[in-house]
């Protein structure tokens, strides 16, 4: 049972969290843009919402709202990110700002956020609206600060973690907490625990994504070296260059391929660093498991089964396997 849940998170799912009549019919190319954007995404966050909500026995319309909300926010950030970074591709397809126009990409992102606020205000849960607004604010702060670190080749891992906690982890925290807010279960200790779990999941997800950029556990054969070539030192790059002198750092940032990285650092040395990096993250996973254990005593009896499902997530997100 656990394996099938894990596999379902990893598989691409054409999860349509919206219907054509969610948006006005008179905005040209809007639905086409969203169709492109939402297709081929795994919808991981929406799935997480669905799984948590199932244990809380939330009504179908509430689950749909939450799933839609998180996917809208996430994809709005992708629309803007691709334009900011001038990334030509998104999910193996031409990015929206290139295929349509930069103006449409910006507006489409803003429109998704506006729809989120509209839908949530119609739903009427004030705590949920407030928390969502806080999350979007954190997301944007993280994006802003990250943008200020482009071509900063000496940024530290801890500084990056701070950015990722604002940017990536905010969404995961929301996924963990929003269903409970919708279910009007707002215990402080419960939400602190969920917050910590979301934060750690976000960290693991980001670090795994950063490893992917160095072709580590790249089971899907995604394009690599995008971060470094765009002038951004991701967490693994920062880890690799610790203790390097200025000359080697300069050579590192000039690398265009994984082969060049291996040549510079030495292949054995590269995998030794990887092992060390993995060790750090194993501690993060143990910390996550600790919070999951705490969650058991905070959940109502009907929702206890949720913990077993949440425990598989680090494996899915970090090790990228079921």
């Amino acid at each position: 049972m656990t394996d099938s849940f894990a596999k379902s998170y990893l598989l691409a799912m054409n999860l349509k969290v919206y219907a054509p009549d969610d948006f006005p019919s008179y905005l040209p190319k809007l639905n086409a843009l969203y169709d492109d954007l939402f297709s081929h995404g795994k919808g991981f966050r929406a799935k997480l919402i669905q799984r948590i909500s199932a244990h809380l026995e939330l009504k179908a319309d509430a689950v749909h709202l939450l799933a839609q909300t998180i996917e809208f926010i996430h994809n709005a950030s992708l629309l803007h990110d691709d334009l900011i970074d001038r990334s030509p591709l998104r999910r193996e397809k031409t990015a929206a700002w290139l295929k349509y126009t930069p103006e449409y990409a910006v507006l489409a992102g803003d429109y998704l956020l506006a729809r989120v606020m509209l839908n949530l205000s119609r739903y009427g849960n004030l705590a949920l609206i407030q928390y969502t607004a806080e999350m979007i604010s954190n997301l944007l702060e993280g994006e802003w600060i990250q943008d200020s670190l482009i071509e900063d080749w000496d940024v530290s891992l801890t500084q990056l973690d701070r950015v990722h906690d604002l940017k990536t982890a905010s969404l995961f925290k929301w996924c963990m907490r929003a269903p409970f807010i919708a279910a009007k279960n707002e215990g402080v200790e419960l939400h602190n625990t969920l917050d910590e779990m979301g934060s750690l999941l976000g960290l693991l997800f980001q670090r795994s994504d950063d490893l992917l950029d160095f072709d580590v556990r790249n089971y899907e054969g995604k394009a690599v070296m995008g971060d470094l070539t765009s002038g951004y030192m991701n967490s693994f790059a920062t880890f690799l260059t610790r203790g390097m002198n200025e000359q080697r750092r300069t050579k590192f940032r000039e690398c265009k391929t994984i082969g060049e990285i291996h040549q510079l650092i030495g292949e054995a040395e590269f995998f030794k660093f990887l092992e060390e990096f993995d060790e750090h993250n194993k501690k993060v996973i143990r910390l996550y498991d600790h919070h999951a254990e705490n969650l058991l005593r905070l959940l109502p009896s009907t929702a206890q089964g949720l913990v077993a499902e949440l425990k598989i997530l680090p494996g899915v997100l970090y090790w990228r396997k079921a």
Binding site: I145, S148, L149, D152, W153, V155, S156, V163
Partner: peptide
């Protein structure tokens, strides 16, 4: 200096 997280601040 362009960012509070900038490494140039540490320098």
């Amino acid at each position: 200096v362009s960012s509070p997280l900038s490494s140039s601040l540490v320098t």
